[in-house]
Design a protein around this nucleic acid. Sequence first.
DNA 1: GACAATGTTACAGT
DNA 2: CACTGTAACATTGT
Length: 289
Amino acid sequence: MPELPEVETIRLGLQKYLVGQRIEKLEVRLPKIFQGSAKQIEGAKIIGVRRFGKGLVIDLSNNYSLAIHIKLTGQLIYRGPETAKVVNVSKEKIGGELPNKWTHVIFKLDKNSFLYYNDLRQFGWIKIVKTDDVKNLPFFKELGPEPPVAASIGVQPLTQELFEGVIKSSNVAIKPLLMDQKKIGGIGNIYANDALFDARIDPRRRAKTLSDEEIKILYDSILKVLKLGLKEGGATEVNFVNALGQEGGYQNHFLVYGREGEKCKRCGETIKKIKLGGRGSYFCPVCQK
DNA sequence: GACAATGTTACAGT
DNA sequence: CACTGTAACATTGT
């Protein structure tokens, strides 16, 4: 779920509500997911929110930044006077009132506002680093170019030509390759499955066996599914919510992801599920060649 | 109780 | 060294 469209959805919300606010107080309830100390950020003002693939960076006025990765189940939820009347908040997904037992970090902001970091499985992390050093963190340093579907800042765009180079130089199965963040930034299991279905390509094909034509089609399919994901505000399957705690809508548009045993939307064949690179992979054995 | 789950990442093996 | 595949991380739900 938290792939490029989901993280961008969160970023847009944070950008809207956080910029201009001052961090008054930091409360870390689960130290193992947090790196840094309160004195580095307390008193600083939030000046922007950037996204690099599935990574988020909250920039502060004192040349420090909060680098964040929400991994599988992290949530960043804003609460302030202007959000009092927000509707459609998913109480179920955020665990009821905030903070709760899944709230591991609390940022107290201006005028009685709060930013809560929730994380069911505790795989995510938040690191305070000098803004200039964000790009040296392992995840950010090794991140590949990302599909140009959002106004992202600081990441190299994945052009058709770069994509072709990535595909042709790899002997890995195409699906795990699409999800390799070092090669391409931002694509995870949901959009990898759906893009391959849209392009009619078998997820098990070795990348370098794709024809020029197939590579072009796949490139367009990737942009297409990511754009729909963005338009729908992300996919909420297990845990994803936006910066206000609301669910996304892309789960209602899944092409093959999570549809094992259901009928192919194109030919009616039964959708199969296999493991590829340790991850569930869904495809139509008839349509996808 | 066994198993699977969206994402990285450490590590063992080739 | 580069590349590849697998298990691990913690928790919840089936």
